[in-house]
Design a protein around this nucleic acid. Structure first.
Length: 271
DNA sequence: AGAGGTACCTGGCAGC
DNA sequence: TGCTGCCAGGTACCTC
């Protein structure tokens, strides 16, 4: 479910309900996420006022005076803001109750997500410290992309999935951006020409912008903080469309296995 | 240093 | 209807 646009959508959805609110209590029903939810979060967060809700890559940062909660939705996580007395399902692992009577509810069936706490600058946290530039930052430029891709044999799709190169691009949008840039997902990153980089940076930004505007992609069950689905799936060009005609030229879309994960491309439009 | 594989979990779905 | 096998949007960590 959650790639950068979904996380950004979630962030925007919860922000107005959280910022300025005092945390009343933290209820953990299942602490076994990717890493156990630390006791320090449960003991420190109550009483704190949420000062800001930020995103870095696919991490959501709930900033308070004593520290920052670092939240990751993994593959199946979602956030809702609901009245505290709403009965939880078996996947609603955490509630962060607010003075408003609402609570931020984390649901994560696969438990690949994470909820951590740091009393320090979260940018220095082990999980965030090695992240590459955000796709919308000036630092993510064609010059940058050209430089860091030199001599890399890794497939372009996998190069884009690596958060050290660019933060927050997952499998769906990597494939979609490569289609838009006219580049095959299996091509070696080191073979990018200068103008390929220009088109790719542009394509990544365009793809992500459109997806954010549509409220994310709904595959299976993604919902935003208000429980509404995303609509970007309706505009997917290649992802999950193996065998179906390319929207641009009609050639059947091909699926490719790169590592353990599928990639999709149009053999006519992408080179 | 870089490339490739493994592991963490569970739900949904296609096929029989 | 029920079983089996496969697939999944992420990413840290291990080995070669």
């Amino acid at each position: 479910m959650p790639e950068l646009p979904e996380v950004e959508t979630a962030c925007r959805g919860i922000r107005p309900h959280l910022v300025g609110q005092r945390v009343i209590r933290v209820t953990v029903r299942e602490r076994r996420l990717r890493w156990p939810i630390p006791a320090s979060l449960v003991s420190t967060l109550p009483g704190q006022i949420i000062r800001a809700v930020d995103r870095r890559a696919k991490y959501i940062l709930l900033r308070a005076d004593a520290g920052t909660a670092i939240l990751h939705l993994g593959m199946s996580g979602s956030l809702r803001v609901v009245p505290c007395d709403t009965p939880p399902t078996k996947w609603d692992h955490v509630d962060i109750a607010l003075a408003s009577g609402q609570c931020l509810r984390l649901r994560d069936p696969r438990r690949f997500g994470a909820l951590l706490w740091t009393p320090h600058d979260p940018a220095q946290h082990k999980l965030l410290q090695a992240l590459g530039p955000e796709p919308f930052d000036d630092g993510f430029s064609d010059e940058y992309l050209y430089r860091v891709s030199r001599h890399r044999k890794v497939a372009l799709r996998d190069f884009l999935l690596n958060s050290k190169n660019v933060a927050g691009v997952g499998n769906i949008y990597a494939n979609e951006a490569l289609f838009l840039a006219g580049l095959r997902p299996g091509r070696a990153a080191g073979r990018l020409k200068r103008d390929d980089c220009t088109r790719l940076v542009d394509a990544i930004r365009t793809t992500l912008t459109q997806a954010i505007r549509a409220g994310g992609t709904t595959l299976r069950d993604f919902q935003n903080a208000d429980g509404l689905p995303g609509y970007f799936q309706q505009t997917l060009q290649v992802y999950g469309r193996a065998g179906q005609p390319c929207h641009r030229c009609g050639t059947p879309i091909r699926a490719l296995r790169l590592g353990q994960r599928s990639a999709f491309y149009c053999p006519h439009c992408q080179h």
